[in-house]
Write a protein that binds this DNA or RNA. Structure first.
Lengths: 266, 266
DNA sequence: CGGGGATTTGACACATATCAAGAGCGGTGG
DNA sequence: CCACCGCTCTTGATATGTGTCAAATCCCCG
């Protein structure tokens, strides 16, 4: 039994008034009652409670049925699973991906702390992609049925939820622009700048960070092969735009990176 | 004054109880009060009212502030415009696109009757892409502020709206899969099958239809150049999968088209 | 400390882009 | 109603960006 699991057991507390039913554990991921609610969570400026008043945040906490620990490489949910809840990343890093029959995998997103996963499942009432942890992670389980009810009574929550969905749509538009009209180096530059920005928004360094995904996963997300990603990294390093050593990346010249996007050839 | 405009004026009726403010006309597009409400609209099985009871549909009609006529090539909204409403396509065909500084355009979607546009504007409270009519078209103006209020009181509407947003996210995942991991011919096959299906859902022929967009626009959507699109059309025709004559397309072998997707090379 | 996956780099292949020319069609105006 | 013009589409020849295959090195994880 590893230390994470021990910690998770120690953390079990009756926090939610009346959990309606059990959430099935998948793989070795573990389900725990939440001990720290949204009000104490340091992500409340980024996550669902963003913009809500203290009283409202207390109510929003009731949404969180439990928290799930997911170890590196394991699934939070899989394509085809029944849809019951959304997930907010509490800690760690996830990827979501779609598969083609022949095994080709397209990564559709990387999620970091405070971001919401699973919204594509609402329509079909079934998850349509796989969510896998890129490192040992935790996700808050947001029961969708409760979210529906609660957001009818809390306009602020309703608004925030709609904005979260809307931003997911807008984000994907950006990815479509990237995949449909940018060249390999532009794609990687856009990707690095995006990561940098998101780390900075979480008060981590936006200038120096560790990639949680492999070159192959970056390639899958960007519609490139891993060798092409690797070559682009090397080229950026030669040009003094970044420093790379395996997964450790330093952004040396963010302006230079921005300049390479959106100007066609050269 | 053309016949469409005359018709639009003839159509003006006080249908909505208290329009709060004028919707500014853009270009030569025209705003009219709606005469036929959602209950009579033949799209109610596809559009927002889908799944609602008759009573509920009556209430949903209050969402529709007006209808806008947009002529071919003109904008329904532009990137940067303040966001006030969503739009449901009443008739015709629209494209939405994102621009890069250097003028590259990525078409992010084609919308046909019953589909909802503009959801990416909710988060930023500003439209983030351009919506242009591909033929003379009409769109129902859904005031977002009313949608928020009404969906708090009509659970069915809330549910339907969330599903519409969710499906938009899922659709974009599909496009990302297409752009990120399919080859030119697979992309076109997927595109044609998708169009065919959507026409069929609207009781038009899914076997024979007229493309509303140019080869260049198809290419922009699929991340290809127009010549590549044209060549793929010709190849499909040679292989007996489809018939093409300019914008008129016949699907001769849907199974064959499906077979070419998702099997890697060849 | 050992082993296997991840990364880098090179050489070459191939899919798609680019450039170019001509044909077809549709809308407009005489 | 016909003829013209311009835009769209098709097709060919060539260029190029990225994929593919291969091998060596590096590290991280167990």
């Amino acid at each position: 039994m590893d230390k994470d699991l021990k910690a998770s057991i120690a953390e079990v507390q009756v926090f939610v008034a009346s959990p309606r039913r059990a959430v099935p554990a998948r793989g070795s991921s573990e389900v725990t009652r939440v001990s720290t609610g949204c009000a104490n969570c340091n992500l409340h400026e980024i996550c669902i409670p963003c913009g809500l008043t203290g009283r409202e945040v207390d109510q929003v906490e009731e949404l969180i049925y439990a928290r799930r620990r997911v170890k590196r490489g394991e699934s939070l949910y899989r394509a085809g699973d029944a849809f019951n809840s959304l997930y907010a990343v509490r800690s760690g890093f996830f990827k979501t991906s779609q598969m083609l029959e022949d095994g080709r995998e397209q990564i559709t997103a990387f999620y970091m702390a405070g971001e919401i996963m699973g919204m594509d499942g609402i329509g079909p009432e079934r998850h349509s992609c796989n969510a896998v942890a890129l490192e040992d992670s935790q996700a808050c389980v947001i029961l969708y049925s409760r979210l529906e009810v609660l957001s009818r009574n809390l306009p602020g929550l309703q608004q925030q939820f709609h904005k979260v969905m809307s931003r997911e749509i807008a984000r994907e538009h950006g990815v479509m622009l990237l995949l449909g009209s940018m060249r390999a180096e532009e794609r990687l530059a856009a990707f690095l700048l995006n990561l940098s920005q998101r780390f900075a928004a979480r008060r981590y360094s936006g200038h120096e960070f560790v990639l949680r995904m492999t070159r192959e996963e970056i390639g899958s997300y960007l519609g490139l092969k891993l060798e092409t990603v690797s070559r682009a990294f090397s080229k950026f390093q030669e040009e003094g735009l970044i420093s790379v050593r395996h997964k450790r990346v330093g952004i040396l010249d963010a302006t230079g990176l921005k300049r390479m996007i959106g100007r066609g050839l050269h």
